[in-house]
Design a protein around this nucleic acid. Sequence first.
DNA 1: CAATATAAAAGTGTCGACACTTTTATTTTA
DNA 2: TAAAATAAAAGTGTCGACACTTTTATATTG
Lengths: 231, 231
Amino acid sequence: MTSNPSDHQSPTASLSDRIFEQLQTAIVKGEITAGSKISEPELAKSYGISRGTLREALSRLEERYLVVRSPNHGARVATLSYDELIDIYQVREALGGMACGLAAHNMTDEEIADLKRLLDTHEKSINEDQGLSYYQQEGEFDFHYRILQGSRNGKVLSILEGGLYQLMRMYRYQFSTASPRPYQALREHRRIVEAIEERDGELADLLMRRHIRAARTSIEERRQASLSQKG
Amino acid sequence: MTSNPSDHQSPTASLSDRIFEQLQTAIVKGEITAGSKISEPELAKSYGISRGTLREALSRLEERYLVVRSPNHGARVATLSYDELIDIYQVREALGGMACGLAAHNMTDEEIADLKRLLDTHEKSINEDQGLSYYQQEGEFDFHYRILQGSRNGKVLSILEGGLYQLMRMYRYQFSTASPRPYQALREHRRIVEAIEERDGELADLLMRRHIRAARTSIEERRQASLSQKG
DNA sequence: CAATATAAAAGTGTCGACACTTTTATTTTA
DNA sequence: TAAAATAAAAGTGTCGACACTTTTATATTG
């Protein structure tokens, strides 16, 4: 359905690889409560594996900011603060813009055509369920993921997809805040693809940055509103 | 001497943390040959630790692109290709520019004053040994590290310092290519600090991007020369 | 003698166990 | 009864061992 790489897993992957993936999605989806303490023996038993294997997965999760460890005190599931989310959006703005500019030069005509078809699918999906669905949210990631791939820059792909997107997913699950502005976002996506199609890297960069900045601003405004409501 | 964080290590760090650090610097400095196969029992014995502990360190190294693992075939020290280096410079350009723009808003006056003093030190160091020394190279990283800190964005700091700078260090050690343009680089550093001092984020961003792009171009040109020399 | 089959060696993936540290529960004492 | 001291429980850090896989070395065969 989606071309998101974090869904499936190579069949030759080792046990600790699979555990790593499973834990990652469990944390992202909130199935393991954010901020909760992790008991290694308990968790290992529940997954039916040894502690050593679990530990290997945990150190990789730590490297991805998904768990926090302190010596002799054990591991906790990370909690994502508002400030951190803003930090991530800033990084995304810079990196996503750059990747989009590169994609305008490096994507094949086929890839671009595929991307347009993807947006058609999104439009239908939005019309059907008012943009509230799970798939609409993942579709957003799918769109960005394809552009990262199109940039042909392996590093930016692994930084965003491997590290940062998971944290954003986690935040969205926690506050169940599906894209608040689906139609607007779709329009912006279309313009970005147009720029890529015209091989205008500079414009593609600029539009992508603006798109991500708008998403961030929308989050900031919503927070501002909910803060002034309370105090 | 330098404020680079990868030099020292918290005293309460676990054994696998320390091994992780040791291996990282050993790989970066080329003490463990790039591309060579890693025998877990052998390496564990040479460090006087168990394989489990070593394995934990290896999975973190893998997450940082410093070792590559394939199931049942073991781990190899990563080799950094020219193309990958260019990818990294692109990421650095986008991220370093952003961080510099933020630093212009967020650094304290003291931090800026410190930064200027650091550049004075660099100037002396360049005059003394024609910019060839080890310290001159690390000084460059030091400069960039401080600006990352000044950005007050924890994510960009950990992405660049934790992940990418190590790879660049590795490349420099491998090809023993200390900054090829020390005086020019110093001038650019000074201008960047000026922009920060004037709290001109937009200019600081632009100058930093240009600075990093110049470094990349210099690498590309050098490669072009050495290629046409052969063919 | 080259190519294939077979056996040994080395290596990775995974587990269970023990020492030492932190936390929780219990007992002692002011 | 509340606070401090002590004991028990739970948990983390680290290690050694075994099964199964890959690689290397040896033997077999056309």
